[in-house]
Amino acid sequence: MAEVVKVFGVQRSPFSGRVEIALKLKGVDYEFFEEDLSNKSPLLLKYNPVHKKVPAFLHNGNAIAESQVILEYIDETWNNSPLILPKDPYDRAQARFWARFIDEKCFPTLRKVFWGREEPDKVKEELKELLKTLENELKDNKFFGGETIGFVDIVGNIIAYWVPCMLEAAGVELLTEEKYPRLYQWIHEFVNHDVVKETLPPRDELIAFYRGHRQSVSTSSR
């Protein structure tokens, strides 16, 4: 009996993109169901009843939510090469730490910069420090996972692709090669990886979406 793998997500969502990258790296066939977040499908609400967000992941009838949890499930279920998480327990713990750093520290601060509502200069400085911390952790490696894409890189898709688009839409120049040469090179390597490129939404459309979102919120708040 063939395995049934389904992903309920949104093409412009970095969190949905993480799941697709992992599945493509592993060579797992899956069906992708595009969600309308303004009118969420009954299946999305069924498979992610707690958070009611994308992505929702379905494997042979078993539903899983939260992108980082899904990534670990994919790695353990299809434990063929390439591995997403390192084998060594310490290295695995470190990968989980930095992945959470991205989602719990970097992304919330990015959102503050994007909306520009909370002391913009102070928030920008905070984001700069967080990006510098990531820059230092990358060291001289091609990827956070070493020579191949790993857990932190996949979670870091939001830094590699969505952050530059959001910053450009907000008119903020921050993540430059001059300020973050290692991170900048990592971004180049990551977004041009054959598997990753297949999952990324068109850059111009993403920037237009964020600009429109900012404009609509600005207009409605007047």
Rank of each mutant, 00 (worst) to 15 (best):
74 I>N: 00
74 I>E: 01
75 D>I: 00
77 T>K: 12
77 T>L: 08
78 W>H: 10
78 W>E: 06
79 N>E: 12
80 N>K: 15
81 S>E: 15
83 L>S: 14
83 L>V: 02
85 L>F: 05
85 L>G: 00
86 P>V: 10
87 K>F: 07
88 D>Q: 10
89 P>H: 14
90 Y>L: 14
91 D>R: 12
92 R>D: 06
93 A>L: 09
93 A>Y: 10
94 Q>Y: 03
94 Q>M: 12
95 A>D: 05
96 R>N: 05
96 R>C: 05
97 F>H: 14
97 F>M: 13
98 W>S: 04
98 W>Q: 08
98 W>K: 07
98 W>G: 05
99 A>H: 01
99 A>L: 03
100 R>P: 00
101 F>E: 07
101 F>G: 13
102 I>E: 04
103 D>I: 04
105 K>V: 09
107 F>Q: 12
107 F>N: 06
109 T>G: 06
109 T>Y: 02
111 R>G: 11
114 F>I: 01
116 G>D: 02
117 R>T: 06
117 R>L: 04
118 E>C: 02
119 E>L: 06
120 P>T: 01
120 P>G: 02
121 D>N: 10
122 K>F: 10
122 K>A: 04
122 K>Y: 10
122 K>S: 09
124 K>H: 09
125 E>A: 12
126 E>D: 14
127 L>N: 02
127 L>K: 04
127 L>I: 11
128 K>W: 08
129 E>D: 11
129 E>T: 15
130 L>M: 15
132 K>E: 14
132 K>H: 05
134 L>N: 07
136 N>H: 09
136 N>G: 06
136 N>L: 13
136 N>S: 12
139 K>S: 14
140 D>Q: 14
140 D>K: 15
141 N>R: 15
141 N>K: 15
142 K>E: 13
144 F>R: 06
144 F>E: 05
145 G>P: 03
146 G>N: 09
148 T>C: 13
149 I>P: 08
149 I>M: 11
150 G>W: 02
151 F>M: 01
152 V>E: 00
153 D>G: 07
155 V>I: 15
156 G>F: 02
157 N>M: 11
157 N>S: 06
157 N>E: 05
158 I>L: 11
158 I>Y: 07
159 I>G: 04
160 A>L: 07
161 Y>V: 02
162 W>S: 02
163 V>M: 14
163 V>G: 01
165 C>R: 01
165 C>D: 00
166 M>T: 00
166 M>A: 14
167 L>D: 04
167 L>G: 01
168 E>D: 15
170 A>P: 08
171 G>P: 07
172 V>G: 08
175 L>Y: 12
176 T>H: 11
179 K>L: 15
182 R>A: 10
183 L>E: 01
